[in-house]
Write a protein that binds this DNA or RNA. Sequence first.
DNA 1: TTTGTTCTAGAAAAAATGTTCTATTATGGG
DNA 2: CCCATAATAGAACATTTTTTCTAGAACAAA
Lengths: 187, 187
Amino acid sequence: MGRPSSFLDETVFAAVANCLVEQGEVRLQAVTATAGVSTGSIYHRFGSREGLMAAAWLDAVAAFQRRFLAALASPEEMPGLAAALVTPAFCREEVGRALILTTGRRAEMMSDKAPPDMRLRLDQLNAQSKAALEAFAREQRLPLARVRLALIGVPLGAVRLYLPAKAVPESLDADISRAVMSLLTRD
Amino acid sequence: MGRPSSFLDETVFAAVANCLVEQGEVRLQAVTATAGVSTGSIYHRFGSREGLMAAAWLDAVAAFQRRFLAALASPEEMPGLAAALVTPAFCREEVGRALILTTGRRAEMMSDKAPPDMRLRLDQLNAQSKAALEAFAREQRLPLARVRLALIGVPLGAVRLYLPAKAVPESLDADISRAVMSLLTRD
DNA sequence: TTTGTTCTAGAAAAAATGTTCTATTATGGG
DNA sequence: CCCATAATAGAACATTTTTTCTAGAACAAA
């Protein structure tokens, strides 16, 4: 049914990440050049620049969240630690998506002019994360602010010390763990 | 000696921060409108868009560093803690500069095309910070990576949970302190 | 007051960027 | 083999954004 597509979304998203890191901004011309895809194809698939940016953002957020929620739900000796360590692992294993999440600005990636269905989807994902964190905080009898700091703020702050210039070292996990455990310990 | 200037750098930098937060990007037209300054004046003072961005970035970095280095040098019961708490304080007391540092991308603010003297100045500032952190790590006999995480990564990750949408709450300091102390404790 | 200097003002020009459009290519089904 | 469909390609077009340029305003010193 029709001509098959000649490139993956993933390839374009990687180009977006690359531009974000190299030039600090996403120009369509730079994306097409990097990904080796024509402007016509970009518009055919994503509709507009806004659509492309929103798609890249959504893809990265969803991929991260899948791992994060799974880790948060899995039973552990130290509840929450696995979830905190998802961030550095994600940065090592899915560099492109991690770069979009760490160096992309939300207001720029998912602007007011982005397709409404995509904005809705993002809101849904955010609500899901929020609910999961609140449930965790309740179960553990810890303040929500501290849980957010431990599971998101600290790991993100940690990997940003390296990205986008350097790879996230394995040794970072031990330091993250130390900080996270201190935050997730009740008094 | 010539006509006096009718606006402060600060006013323009605040407009840059505002654009960064509101639109996720810095358009000169938006800056001139927000700051109430003509394009002619912007070019007269900053030379180009790149020059303006570099100036705003440099101003924010320098302001932060002044406080950070002072705190790091001041004697304390818990060495380094005061330095870690500079970040949330900076976000409360110098919001515009904090927004530039937290939401601006370095590659965009200080691009390759920025004035060479400004790029040099930034390199000098970075070298200064690096040296201070290394000295601190040596004195405290702690790994440099852990010191960087404690004094920069954690506080930055913490305030980013709030900025740019919300104010950084006072209660955050206690949580940051907890995490930082666990990282700065040997063994 | 005149002169020299520095700054502001904003429209015009130039450059860069995003979008549309038509032609073309690749695939499957009738 | 021909048709319908769906995708690619890239030049032409439209829009947006940056930059330049000329005129004029504010101030100090002579």
